[in-house]
Each structure stands twice: as structure tokens, then as C-alpha cells.
């Protein structure tokens, strides 16, 4: 049995997806200019990562392993994730238009978000059970949202700051990310 608390704390703080594993960097720099859009993106990612973990685990365990085609996991996972995101988008658009307005524009971006693919691959590599995988996916999404929210708060402040001309926009964002990552290093070595 997996230690669920250890998985959760590990995915949120110790091995934070953005600041430690460098997964999902494109939205991290692309959608972190405003706190409100960062929150929308964060919720969409939490949802998709949790579901992607729940879907890819049975496919790998009950389909790829019995037929001994584990080498097909890259192709299978990416197709499953892309189809799933597309499906979610259609369902939300039809039945929950208010939710679609809040999350809709972020959903297509998530297909090529390496964090989603990364969590599916990591679950398989770490050999988690189904519940472990779902917890891992959910907490990895929380970790991503946490980093994104912190970053957007910093960038809203940076708008008003007097930054040297060469460092304007992205370079100063990268420096802030470095300092955030440095702060998150304090969690490393934490064991539950």
C-alpha cells in the first residue's frame, strides 16, 4: 500500500512539478501575468491531471502489460490525454456554459502541457496503485497551481517595479522563478 500522505506532500512541495521537475513551464510563464487567469488555469490543470492519472493507470495495467506492449505507452498516453481533453471540452461546452467560460480557453492548451503527460509517465515509473496515482495526479495539480499563483502574485508586483531595461518581462520572470525554486529547495529531504 502506498503512503498517500507521502505521495501528496512529495508532489506538492518536495518534487514540485514546475520548480523541481520543470514540467509545465510554458503555461507557468505564459498564463502567470494575472492572478485570476492563473487560478482558472490551475483548476483546469488539477482536474485534467487527476482524471488523466485515473484513466492512464488502468490502460497501462490491464491493456499494455497483459499484451506485453509497454513500449507503446508514449503513443497510447498522448492519444488518450488528447482525446480526453477534447471530450471534456465538448461536454463542458454543451452542459456547463459558465464553467466553459471560466476554463474553456485553457483546456486546449493543456493537451501539450508536459505536466499532464509527465504525471502519467511518473505514476507508471514509480509503480503506484490506482489510488496512489490519482492522489499523485491531484496533488501534482495542486503543486502546479500553487507555483502558478505565487508566480502571478510576483509578476503583478513586477509590473510596477523599476526593472533594468535588459531584464524587462521574461528575464526578470525567470529570476523570480529561480528565487521561488530556491525557496522550495528548503522542502527537499523532507520525509514522511
Amino acid at each position: 500500500m502506498d503512503n498517500l500522505l507521502a505521495i501528496a506532500v512529495g508532489a506538492i512541495f518536495v518534487n514540485n512539478f514546475v520548480l523541481f521537475r520543470f514540467l509545465g513551464l510554458c503555461p507557468f510563464f505564459g498564463v502567470s501575468k494575472k492572478t485570476s487567469s492563473a487560478l482558472g488555469m490551475g483548476f483546469a490543470v488539477i482536474f485534467v491531471m487527476t482524471c488523466a492519472s485515473a484513466i492512464t493507470w488502468p490502460i497501462y495495467t490491464y491493456l499494455l502489460i497483459p499484451f506485453e506492449i509497454e513500449f507503446m505507452r508514449t503513443v497510447t498516453f498522448i492519444l488518450v490525454i488528447a482525446t480526453f481533453v477534447q471530450l471534456i471540452e465538448m461536454v463542458i461546452r454543451k452542459y456547463r456554459s459558465s464553467l466553459y467560460k471560466a476554463l474553456g480557453i485553457y483546456l486546449p492548451l493543456i493537451t501539450t502541457n508536459c505536466a499532464v503527460m509527465g504525471v502519467a509517465l511518473l505514476n507508471v515509473e514509480e509503480g503506484y496503485s490506482l489510488i496512489g496515482s490519482v492522489v499523485d495526479g491531484f496533488s501534482a495539480g495542486i503543486g502546479f497551481t500553487l507555483a502558478l499563483l505565487l508566480m502571478s502574485g510576483i509578476r503583478e508586483r513586477l509590473e510596477l517595479a523599476d526593472v533594468p531595461k535588459s531584464f524587462e518581462n521574461l528575464p526578470i520572470a525567470f529570476i523570480s522563478a529561480a528565487l521561488l525554486a530556491l525557496a522550495f529547495m528548503a522542502f527537499s529531504g523532507m520525509r514522511l
Binding site: 520548480l19 520543470f22 533594468p164 528575464p171 526578470i172 525567470f174 529570476i175 529561480a178 525554486a181 529547495m185
Partner: peptide
């Protein structure tokens, strides 16, 4: 990880 962010920030600047 922080070193990676620092390096790319300095190169872009």
C-alpha cells in the same frame, strides 16, 4: 533547479 532559471535569465538579458 534554481541554477537553471538563473542561467537562462542571464543569457536572455
Amino acid at each position: 533547479p534554481p541554477g537553471a532559471f538563473f542561467t537562462i535569465a542571464i543569457i536572455m538579458a
